[in-house]
Design a protein around this nucleic acid. Structure first.
Length: 550
RNA sequence: GCCCCUGUAGCUCAGAGGAUAGAGCAGCGGUUUCCUAAACCGUUGGUCGGAAGUUCGAAUCUUCCCAGGGGCGCCA
């Protein structure tokens, strides 16, 4: 919000001086405080089009701006930067606005209610959610929350692959475990089957419910029955893991249901009409290589069944039909080879492929005692999302996943996470919040907490640390917009760490609650109360709790 | 072989064209009659993987090379 103010002032100044400003210039917070609170490169950017040197132009602009009372100092430096030091009065005014906004601080109509579909997690319903899904859940949900805050109309969906042959294998695995319970010798458990303990638990549960009745059905009915049972149990398991993570989906879309609606045939006929399918080796192929894919892809296998691709494409088309103008898929790294074919299909069917955006979350490696744990769902060797929450807790887990940008590989040492829980940055940030809560409690006890804070107290907020905190707070609305546009929730974590550091330093340096100078105390309390509120807003976006006490 | 991601301090990572590259942790030395020491202060530590190019200016953009991880099924 401050950058916009300065930018607007600069434009006004350029207009009055009759300086041309075709090219875009920026207003930034310099990384070195010696260069002021804010800095603009406008003179360097505009020098060429005004046929003058950056320095001369900068001098001209800064001279005109010096009259402005919002700026305590305007200076030309280096190759032609214009550096600004803002007046405390401007900071105080801005602070009052932030304060008045309360929980709506950072809200905007920037997104213009654009309908955005966020698809994430979409794990196979064949086992508990793993750590990659946990990362996707944290990332997708936080992105959703930020988008919503800045005025988009996002929707969260989970696509359930409940119709493929993985599910058949799951049912077969369950049957084997059931027979085992009944004392059958099943021999060696097949390599392809699901080895996880959860399959045994499912077998026990089903056995307790239905006993031998399961085996009185025909083979075909039994497999359907086992499939339905396993699916609903596992989906429930996944849903409850996500709930523990505070991730709720607006929609769960079933592949099976889509197929039943006949969308598969529809998609096949669309592609055929677009003249980009052909038959070879008894299979039907999509000529995706015509649209930039490495090779053509099978749509219908020689046994008459269809591949994963067809219903998935159909699902994407339903998103468009439902009026979403941006489709964001958040995928694991193993899906990147899949992208060209779905983009190819968009092209083939005449849709704008720019509407489809795919974010890849890179893999999560689990280390235990310095050694990497190889994970495989089929072999039953996985570290689940629930394990992670059990060990490090929801807050730390979510923070850890959000704090890294999507494209970064993530190494997670379980032992270290356990050992270091006091040193984890999430505690640093939460502690800053708890400390403010503690100060407020003390102020109330000392009876210096007023019924309402008076605006006149603002002038007492003039210490460099205080103005810097206000500047940080004022940064948030722009940051949220950037996070939404660039899909970068990790910047929330950086922001939190910076703000928390400022609070800890401020806390250590100044006495806040001092009955001897009540007004000064109240001014500082006012600053801290608002900061606490802003921290709570950001914690909420991250899905992390804002503790009053630690 | 082709494709994707990564390479910044001892470790984990920020830094999306700006000035002297930052944080946390680890290391070293300090701080508590006072609002929580899960903190603060000071300090050590960097050829931003390498090379060339683009420009007033590059960790950031382009190309090539090197190294690590992952993906390349009529699986999903």
């Amino acid at each position: 919000m401050i950058k916009e103010i300065i930018h607007a002032q600069l434009i006004e100044c350029l207009e009055t001086l009759g300086i041309s400003h075709e090219k875009e210039f920026s207003v930034e917070i310099p990384n070195n405080t010696e260069y002021g609170d804010y800095s603009s490169n406008c003179a360097m950017v505009l020098a060429k089009e005004n046929k003058t040197s950056p320095k001369v132009l900068a001098e001209k602009i800064s001279k005109a701006l010096k009259k402005n009372k919002d700026f305590k100092k305007v200076e030309v430096a280096g190759p032609g930067f214009i550096n600004f030091v803002l007046s405390p009065a401007l900071y105080q005014r801005i602070f009052w606005d932030i304060r008045k906004a309360e929980n709506s601080f950072g809200d905007s109509d920037f997104g213009a209610e654009e309908k955005i579909l966020l698809e994430f997690v979409s794990a196979n319903p064949t086992g508990p959610l793993n750590i990659v899904s946990a990362r996707a859940a944290a990332f997708g949900d936080t992105l959703y929350r930020v988008m919503k805050k800045v005025g988009f109309a996002p929707v969260r969906e989970f696509y359930i692959n409940d119709a493929g042959n993985q599910v058949d294998i799951l049912a077969e695995s369950l049957e084997l475990r059931l027979r085992e319970l009944h004392g059958d010798n099943i021999g060696e458990f097949p390599y392809e089957a699901y080895h996880g303990e959860y399959v045994k638990h499912l077998a026990q549960k089903l056995n307790a419910l239905e006993g031998v009745r399961v085996f009185m059905m025909t083979e075909k009915d039994r497999m359907e029955h086992l499939k339905d049972f396993a699916l609903s149990e596992i989906l429930e398991m996944q849903r409850s893991s996500l709930e523990r993570f505070d991730v709720v989906f607006d929609g769960w879309v079933s592949e099976k249901a889509l197929r039943a609606e006949g969308v598969v045939e529809e998609v096949l006929s669309y592609l055929t009409e677009a003249d980009c399918t052909y038959e070879k080796d008894d299979a039907i192929w999509f000529a995706s290589s015509k649209f930039g894919d490495d090779k053509d892809r099978v749509l219908m296998k020689s046994d008459g069944s269809i591949t994963y691709f067809v219903p998935d494409l159909a699902y994407h088309l339903t998103k468009l039909q439902r009026g979403f103008t941006t489709l964001i898929d958040i995928f694991g790294p193993d899906h990147h080879g899949y992208v060209p074919r779905i983009r190819a299909a968009f092209q083939a069917l005449g849709y704008d492929e720019k509407m489809l955006e795919i974010i890849f979350l890179q893999q999560v490696n689990i280390f235990e005692g310095g050694e990497r744990v190889k994970m495989s769902k089929r072999a039953g060797k996985i570290v689940t999302m629930d394990d992670l929450i059990d060990v490090v807790g929801k807050d730390a887990a979510r923070y850890f996943f959000i704090a890294r940008k999507a494209s970064a590989h993530l190494n997670f040492d379980l032992e270290l996470a356990l050992k270091q829980n006091n040193e984890n940055p999430v505690y640093y940030c939460q502690y800053a919040h708890a400390r403010i809560a503690s100060i407020i409690k003390k102020a109330k006890k000392e009876k210096i907490w007023p019924k309402a804070f008076k605006k006149e107290l603002l002038v007492k907020l003039n210490k460099p640390e205080e103005l810097a905190i206000i500047q940080k707070l004022a940064d948030l609305p722009e940051l949220l917009r950037l996070i939404a546009i660039h899909r970068e929730p990790h910047r929330l974590a950086t922001y939190m760490e910076e703000l928390s550091a400022m609070i800890h330093k401020y806390y250590a340096r100044y006495q806040i609650v001092n009955p001897k100078s009540k007004e000064l105390s109240q001014a500082r309390l006012m600053l801290l109360e608002t900061t606490k509120n802003v921290m709570a807003i950001v914690f909420d976006l991250m899905g992390i709790s804002a503790p009053e006490k630690m």
